[in-house]
Design a protein around this nucleic acid. Sequence first.
DNA 1: CTGTTAGCGCTTTCAG
DNA 2: CTGAAAGCGCTAACAG
Lengths: 326, 326
Amino acid sequence: MTVSNVVNGRPGVAESTRLLVDASIRHLGYKPNLSARRLAKGRTGMLTLSIPEVEIPYFAEISSAMLRAALERSMDILINQSDWDRDRELDLIHGSMSLLTDGILLYPSTLTQSDLNGARPGVPLVLFGGSEVFTNVDHVVIDNVAAAQEATEHLVSLGHRRIALIGPHLEPNSRKPNGRLAGYARALEVARIKRSQELLVNVPTYHRVDGYRAMQQLFELPQPPTAVFCLSDLLAVGALHAAYDRGVAVPGELSIMGFDDVEESRYSNPALTTIKPDKLAIARHALDLISGPGEGSEQNGPRTVITNHELVIRASTAAPGRTAAH
Amino acid sequence: MTVSNVVNGRPGVAESTRLLVDASIRHLGYKPNLSARRLAKGRTGMLTLSIPEVEIPYFAEISSAMLRAALERSMDILINQSDWDRDRELDLIHGSMSLLTDGILLYPSTLTQSDLNGARPGVPLVLFGGSEVFTNVDHVVIDNVAAAQEATEHLVSLGHRRIALIGPHLEPNSRKPNGRLAGYARALEVARIKRSQELLVNVPTYHRVDGYRAMQQLFELPQPPTAVFCLSDLLAVGALHAAYDRGVAVPGELSIMGFDDVEESRYSNPALTTIKPDKLAIARHALDLISGPGEGSEQNGPRTVITNHELVIRASTAAPGRTAAH
DNA sequence: CTGTTAGCGCTTTCAG
DNA sequence: CTGAAAGCGCTAACAG
């Protein structure tokens, strides 16, 4: 009908008719049925965003950025929580819900490259973040090795020599490449500091409690570190709390450095020195990739976009003072 | 077709046929089109969740709880950020997007009762949280006045007499009822403590920065408070940081109390005493209301469910010591 | 400029 | 147990 034209604000409708239709619409309380529109049109205007956990501030902030970026392009976002579950992530990409949304934005928490080689989803897929960089799919990342190296160098430049590292995937023989670990290693190498296995604390997740426990463990060392680089702000907040509980002064006796620049860390006591990724840029690039060049670009193969990061120096790092040993 | 039956796992299909169909499905890489299914079925299995901001930990935690509760009922959630924008919330309820999802879960950040009296959305609507309790729509709340009263009484029982309050909607002549303010007032009344207007600091939002500024303001008072009750943990974190910056010891010289029991406040230095709402219960009740009794219950009118809360005492509150004045 | 005709991909009837 | 027929509410392509 002509009705469809007026509802969609398309040109080529007489002003009089338009008014008439508008009146009827209001009168009858008509609401368009989006499902039907979608069936007919073939697109939904919705994207699926998959993150491991909304409660982790980094993901909450990234989600918020995605929501904003989507709004800028008048799209909606359906948030899916994968709970770090491999099956949930696999399900999404080979997936059942594919034809509901126009694309999938996924933070690969457990997937590896080879998982992506198999069947492709029915809709565009773009990855963002994660410790590994995928070359077989569109992926928006930061340069994790450079970032971790800068962070470690900052600690080195302050005069630290015993610098611990707290993070997940630090197992000695992990097959999953870990850019941040590599950056840390490189910085030590440049500074001619010998790596010590006891200063590498592997944790199961990025949660505060893991940072707390890891720090406790480091305090028990015969020769505790004078600085700790935590692979997320949340981990750093946990470490900070452990220092607080033990009465160790930060940064006086111990320097702590985070990663992510989540707002929480600007208000911790003391505020955290950290690495700040450009979250809005990540979101915008992800959105551009997903709704961008379209099918035509398949020829050019998967694209990797590297976004900026920045070292933000706040109050939790300083030159080493007295030892952290109690 | 019979195909539909096997896809939906319905009975009444010969085992042989089922196998045949399954094989073809796998072979052809068939994916059901959810939009089509929805058009035909009339329901989408999706709910819209509207919160002001995902980056606010309380909302992130509530979202997570909703996501989990929805998963338990095999539903999906579309998250909408209202950004505290009245128009966005109104739009949602009188709404355009109505027929996309099966229901709307809304945190009323700016709406008032009268906004809900007008046109009803085409789908079930349930409200959760907020400072006002709506009686004309299904609403899941906590008893804000009781909670705030308990919080204040805890401070009183410690021996405090000058207890400040930091929060939004504290204007003297606000028309919007504020349960938490009422609870605070009642506790003081019971303790026969005179209310002082200078101890009420009204802030624009629940963000950390507002707590920070409000606290700075209180420090400038000729006679600063010995305790502060912040109407959100985020505000309390800001206040804590202000105390830290000024070198005021918490809880030695100043007690700080929060509201929400967000994980962040368990790791602040010191950890915050706070009011803990049962977020999962809120989520589950909201989901039950929305997909519950259905149309039949319209006769019984809107339901209000009040969920539990709990006072959690941690390290940020203690008996008053030296004055907080610098 | 307006109205008609198909058909999106599924789920329902209801016959075979 | 299986298949054919109709229609969910919309948009697209065309004809009046």
